[in-house]
Structure formats: structure tokens, C-alpha cells
């Protein structure tokens, strides 16, 4: 059996709302340590991988590892029907592995709402990626910045064009774009430390200058989820997709992998 309980408005609900503009269906793997979710956007430009450790929930129980496909958009619609103060329980029993039961319980325990949501096939949303620890060392540059600043950069640039060029070297991290009506260039002088301060832009890992072109539509989606957190970590490599990461508690994370544009 799998069962988790959370309060309305919890971080899970916030994240599910924030990923909706990219993701309809997701593959969810549950274990005793927590649950992970993987999803591809419909245009196959972004892969989303997140892990919610069990300790971020009010209660969490998973007797046996299990994997299921969830129509995230439908689930979010159901979760929106909860009232302030409700305790939300999400449950799948071994006897019935065809649907997921969502229950809202009012704070005074006088009203309970049960809903069943059918599970779907989401196996195509699982991608084979190497262990994160190995992968992170493959990035040429990794920097952290306040997520509000990241969102502001994406918004400012999207006024001019659909694309952003992110360039990183030892001296500067820049976000720039050029369109018919003009150009924008936002430059940040990074700190260089392993312990990024919350309010500053910090270059944490640098193996050489790198630049990537990305579609701002997808970047704005990454920025949207990142605003639920203080800081966002961004990794660039010419051989890997751009990585945008936010940490959830000690061990949890949300990682977006965004395919760049290339010159043909």
C-alpha cells in the first residue's frame, strides 16, 4: 500500500500546479524513502525529474516499491477542489492498482470527500539518465542565483524575442537576447564559493566558458516552479541539456533538463 498525507497548499501541491504548463502525464515511482516523478513535455524539449523525500509529508507510508502513471492535470484539478485547512490523503492499495484515491478531510473532521482518479500508462515518460552524481561533474559551469532574479531575467528577455543566450565564464554570467525591436543583455558578476549566499549569483563549478541558446517559453516554465524556492541552480554543458534545479528539504529536488537550440 502507498499512502501519503499533506495539508492543503503543501509544497507538493504548489509544484504540481507549477509544472502543469509543461506536463500532462507523469510516471511516479514510490519507495519507502519518498516518491519520484518523471515527465516529458509534449514537444519533447524538457524532461522533468523530481524527488519528494518522505519527511516533507505529514505522514508517508509505502510498503512496497511501485510505479504508476498519473494524469497530473486531472489530479491538480481534483486537488483544487479542497478547502483551506483540509488534510489531503493520496492512497493506492495493492488490491486495486487501477486508480488512486484522493481524500479531503475538513479540519474539524466533520466532512470527508473521496475521489478516485484512474491511473494511466506513462512508461514513455521514463528516461534513462545516468546517476546524478556522475552527471553533475560533466557540466562545464554550474551557478546559483535567487529564483526571483531568474524569473525576472526570463520575463525581461521574452519581451524582445523567444530565445535566450546564457553565457558563463569566470568573470560574468549573462542572459541576452536580440530581436526585431532591440536587444537585452543582463550581466551578473558572480561570487565564487562553494556556499552560495541566498541573495547573490554564485559560480559554484567552472571548467571553462560555455554558452547555450534556449527557448524562453521553456525557461519561463522552469522559472515558475523555481519561485517556490529561494535559489535555483543552473548547469550548462555543450554535451548535456541545460539543467535547472531546486532543492526540496535536505535530500529532495526538482530538476528540469531543457534541450538547447543548436546552429544548423
Amino acid at each position: 500500500m502507498f499512502e501519503l498525507t499533506m495539508a492543503k497548499g503543501s509544497i507538493l501541491q504548489g509544484v504540481l500546479e507549477a509544472i502543469l504548463d509543461l506536463v500532462n502525464v507523469a510516471n511516479v515511482d514510490c519507495s519507502s524513502k519518498g516518491f519520484s516523478l518523471q515527465a516529458l513535455d509534449t514537444e519533447h524539449v524538457v524532461f522533468l525529474s523530481l524527488f519528494f523525500p518522505s519527511e516533507v509529508f505529514r505522514s508517508y507510508r509505502c510498503d512496497e516499491d511501485c510505479s504508476m502513471g498519473i494524469a497530473i492535470a486531472d489530479m491538480v484539478d481534483l486537488l483544487r477542489a479542497s478547502n483551506d485547512g483540509d488534510i489531503i490523503t493520496i492512497k493506492v492499495t495493492d488490491q486495486n492498482f487501477e486508480d488512486i484515491t484522493i481524500t479531503f478531510e475538513s479540519p474539524d473532521k466533520t466532512k470527508t470527500t473521496d475521489m478516485d482518479l484512474q491511473l494511466v500508462d506513462a512508461r514513455s515518460h521514463r528516461l534513462k539518465i545516468s546517476e546524478w552524481h556522475d552527471m553533475e561533474s560533466e557540466y562545464q559551469a554550474i551557478f546559483c542565483m535567487p529564483s526571483a532574479q531568474f524569473m525576472l531575467n526570463c520575463k525581461s528577455l521574452s519581451v524582445i524575442d523567444d530565445d535566450v543566450v546564457i553565457r558563463v565564464n569566470e568573470e560574468v554570467i549573462s542572459f541576452s537576447t536580440k530581436g526585431k525591436s532591440g536587444c537585452v543583455n543582463i550581466s551578473h558578476v558572480p561570487n565564487k564559493t562553494d556556499n552560495p549566499e541566498k541573495a547573490s549569483v554564485t559560480l559554484t563549478h567552472m571548467r571553462g566558458p560555455v554558452s547555450l541558446t534556449l527557448n524562453l517559453r521553456y525557461m519561463k516554465s522552469c522559472a515558475k516552479v523555481s519561485t517556490l524556492f529561494d535559489q535555483v541552480k543552473i548547469g550548462l554543458s555543450t554535451k548535456l541539456p541545460l539543467m535547472v534545479e531546486c532543492k526540496i528539504a535536505e535530500k529532495g529536488y526538482i530538476r528540469y533538463f531543457v534541450a538547447p537550440k543548436i546552429t544548423e
Partner: peptide, 14 residues
């Protein structure tokens, strides 16, 4: 000119 790559170029389906 620049073209959008697919994420599957980097990661295979499991």
C-alpha cells in the same frame, strides 16, 4: 539558423 533539439537526443527512453 538555430533549431530546437529534442531532449531524447541526450537521454534514451528507459
Amino acid at each position: 539558423f538555430q533549431v530546437q533539439t529534442e531532449i531524447l537526443k541526450f537521454f534514451a527512453v528507459q
